[in-house]
Design a protein around this nucleic acid. Structure first.
Length: 268
DNA sequence: CATCAGGCGAGAC
DNA sequence: GTCTCGCCTGAT
């Protein structure tokens, strides 16, 4: 078991912020995360978070996944004094971090997210994993399912995708899975591209537009300049930033601020 | 019963 | 380039 001081780190807020759909609350302070082909349980109280894994696994996998090498206090400190709205937002969601999630999983997850709510997105992804993912078992006997590969999803008949309640996104998922499986887009190469280049490559995939491409850049590629604009964010920008959001002042981490704003708006 | 959820592609202009 | 429209499904 590994204990982490809970400064700028809240599993509850990360889970609720809607960037990760497979981090679920199991009990009052207990969380389960399925990611990177693994399963991790964690416990969170006021002061600290306990990870139930070895020191080695924590150091080699989860430390990077949770972006623990970055000082989010420094980002929060950059928020302008006179921007009351943003100061309230970062204060309210100060435990949010931007995770480094799997690229393929984020591509499909955020295709599913369009015109959809978090509860149903989770349900769809869970169903896809149970049906087409690989069944695994932890040492403690917990059964979990990995995220299905591009090859696997490419071969699922359209009607079976519809049966997963994916709706019109079924066609997007099938076409995108086939594009990736056939090597039209090499995901390993996308990982090392500049933000603008990676985004334009993602936009070529069927079912991926501006908003979804930015979500993928932010939550998988860790391109912190990506600033996904959904209906909520657009309303906030119209309401709070009639002169325009000061992107130039927050270069290099505007996407993190987007998450604070999204979360604050979602919960208030 | 209507409306809306973290949009997108296709077609018109 | 910009605009409009239709789209699966479940919750309210």
């Amino acid at each position: 078991m590994i204990n982490i001081e809970k400064q700028y780190f809240s599993l509850k807020q990360i889970s609720e912020s809607g960037q990760c759909f497979r981090l679920e609350q199991l009990g009052n302070e207990r969380y389960g995360l399925t990611a990177l082909g693994r399963y991790l349980e964690a416990q969170e109280n006021q002061e600290e978070i306990s990870f139930f894994c070895s020191r080695e696994e924590f150091e080699s996998v989860w430390k990077d996944y949770f972006d623990l090498g970055r000082d989010y206090g420094k980002i929060i400190a950059c928020v302008e004094e006179e921007d009351d709205y943003l100061r309230k937002a970062v204060c309210y969601g100060s435990g949010i971090r931007i995770l480094k999630q799997d690229l393929w999983e984020m591509i499909i997850s955020f295709i599913i997210s369009q015109q959809n709510n978090i509860k149903r997105i989770r349900k769809c992804i869970d169903y896809l994993c149970r049906k087409y993912g690989e069944e695994k078992r932890t040492e403690e006997g917990k059964i979990y399912y990995t995220f299905p590969s591009p090859e696997k999803l490419a071969n699922v008949p359209l009607e079976d995708l519809y049966a997963c309640n994916l709706g019109y996104r079924s066609r997007y998922i099938q076409k995108t899975a086939r594009s990736v499986a056939e090597g039209e887009l090499d995901l390993r190469i996308v990982q090392s591209m500049e933000y603008d280049v990676a985004k334009s490559e993602l936009l070529k995939l069927y079912g991926i537009g501006e908003k979804v491409a930015d979500c993928i850049c932010l939550f998988a590629l860790h391109q912190l300049d990506a600033f996904p604009r959904d209906t909520h964010i657009n309303k906030v920008l119209e309401r709070q930033y009639t002169e325009g959001f000061p992107f130039e002042k927050y270069r290099g981490f505007a996407g993190v601020l987007q998450q604070y704003i999204f979360y604050y708006d979602l919960k208030n």
